[in-house]
């Protein structure tokens, strides 16, 4: 009962190859975002920025094939307006393939 094939196990994915994995992604609700920039300050991967002036000041995710987003959701905890949230969690293929995970869900109190 192998969870990863031997071939997969032998390949070390590289962080710059889009075929080897996906970076985390966040969705930003620009109707709720007021451009305060708190998410930018705390993002450990430095993959958010604020652009625009006045009312159009909003947070954006940097446009790179591999932003260092590790889908930690710290931005979503920081944003008290609920404007930002992780939509895709990071994952690498081959040796670092993520196993036995389900969908995103908040804490459940059963």
């Amino acid at each position: 009962m192998a969870y990863i094939s031997f071939r997969e196990r032998m390949i070390i994915p590289t962080y710059d190859n889009p075929e080897h994995g996906t970076s985390g992604r966040v969705v930003i609700d620009h109707e709720k975002c007021n451009g305060c920039g708190n998410c930018v300050i705390i993002c450990p991967g430095a993959c958010l920025y604020v652009a625009g002036v006045g009312k159009d000041k909003k947070a954006y995710m940097i446009d790179a094939p591999f932003p260092d987003c590790m889908s930690c959701n710290d931005c979503s905890a920081m944003c008290k307006r609920g404007a930002i949230k992780v939509s895709v969690t990071y994952g690498y293929d081959y040796f670092y393939k993520i196993l036995h995970r389900g969908e995103l869900a908040p804490p459940r109190n059963f």
Binding site: N38, I41, I42, N73, D74, S76, A77, M78, K80, K85, V86, T89, H100, R101, G102, E103, L104, A105, P106, P107
Partner: peptide
Amino acid sequence: PVGNPDGMIERELQE
């Protein structure tokens, strides 16, 4: 901390 960074978030479920 600056601001209030603590709070509940969404995370992947574990099988």
